[in-house]
């Protein structure tokens, strides 16, 4: 192959990502799927990647069996307050963190199985009017809670026994924090996006606010999904759940914006839009590594490669209905696609 031919082959092979159906989970008693996630679970000296499904009143843990089957092994019942979301903890095994509440999160609980007698346990780690929560590396959770006047940004460390150990507060900005992202490349940096479109940068060690920068869009409530620091600049992947549908730039599901934290100046880097001929507005989604996935108003799931800047796969609704949830596995090689009836489909992304 000549250099030009090799470049074409490489380029084509990079673009040709596909989603292959691997297995399906059906929760027979489920009323409505709320969330899905994955967690490493160790038992009898053997650790495997398990799937966690959330319905309004219970959380189930599914272990893999041979021939792409899954077996429900544990179910925690949460009957007092409905489940709102699962909060993945990136480097934690044998522990599931969930957020509960009515319209907004009122409680964060840890779910585990006792190593002594095998009984299922729950531990309350935080209560309050919680606006945003994110699982951080090194067994930590960050949350924003309270009203604008008494907003509390708190880091909670979680023990192996499912208890909250140390607590540390970060300086609150004068704007409501709606989402957080750890900054890859800088161990002690955290960012958050606010209700009036600012990006706040904290030093996790000292709790200081280092910078508050405007995201630069007219519509409110941008959500940060991923942030990394490179060459002295801060790159942030954002979604805009309240973006208008008739935008001239093709109504992108995600955008990447680059900030200079020294000057607070920023500029757009890339839009992640649907290929021509497809339509649909961003409903919800997740970013992991260089992969971004979103459920669109059309009921389709779209996947983008953030490095290539391209939509690499589309998953239209199947015979059972529209997609309502999309999550990446602990690694970004597996995609979990959920429907309202509680069905979860596992796809290999390669």
């Amino acid at each position: 192959l000549t250099a030009e031919e090799l470049a074409v082959v490489l380029s084509d092979s990079l673009r040709a990502r596909s989603l292959q159906l691997a297995s399906k989970l059906k929760n027979p008693s489920s009323s409505c799927a709320v969330d899905v996630s994955t967690v490493w679970w160790e038992s009898a000296g053997f650790t495997e990647l398990c799937i966690v499904t959330a319905c309004e009143t219970f959380i189930s843990l599914w272990k893999p069996l041979a021939s792409s089957q899954w077996r429900k092994v544990y179910t925690w019942h949460l009957t007092e307050i409905p489940v709102i979301q699962i909060v993945p903890l990136p480097d934690v095994s044998n522990l599931v963190c969930v957020a509960l509440g009515d319209l907004e999160i009122g409680e964060i609980r840890l779910l585990l199985c006792s190593s002594e007698d095998g009984s299922l346990k729950q531990s309350l780690v935080k209560t309050g009017n919680i606006k945003a929560v994110l699982g951080l590396t090194n067994r930590r959770l960050v949350s924003s809670s309270g009203t604008l006047q008494d907003q509390q940004i708190e880091i909670i460390s979680v023990s192996e026994a499912g208890r909250s150990n140390e607590r540390q507060t970060l300086m609150p900005p004068e704007e409501t924090i709606l989402a957080f992202a750890e900054v890859e490349g800088i161990r002690d940096a955290l960012v958050g996006t606010t209700a009036v479109n600012s990006l706040v940068v904290w030093n996790l060690k000292t709790g200081q606010i280092l910078k508050k920068m405007h995201v630069g869009y007219s519509y409110p409530a941008s959500i940060c999904h991923r942030a990394y620091s490179d060459s002295g600049l801060l790159f942030v992947v954002l979604s805009h759940p309240h973006a208008k549908e008739n935008e001239s730039c093709g109504n992108p599901a995600f955008r990447m914006r680059v900030f200079n934290p020294k000057t607070a100046r920023s500029t757009g880097v890339m839009f992640f839009s649907l290929p021509p001929g497809h339509s649909g507005r961003y409903l919800e989604g997740e970013v992991k590594g260089v992969s971004a996935a979103a459920v669109l108003t059309s009921g389709t799931i779209a996947v983008w490669d953030l490095f290539l800047g391209q939509c690499t796969a589309l998953l239209p609704p199947n015979a059972d209905g529209n997609w309502s949830l999309v999550r990446w596995s602990v690694t970004d090689s597996c995609l979990l696609a959920g429907q309202k009836d509680g069905s979860v489909y596992v796809y290999h992304y390669s």
Partner: peptide, 23 residues
Amino acid sequence: CSESDLGPISLNWFEELSTEAPP
């Protein structure tokens, strides 16, 4: 540091802002 539309860039922005920001 280099100059661009984003202004002067510092590879040590995190440490520098941590020193400058109020405790």
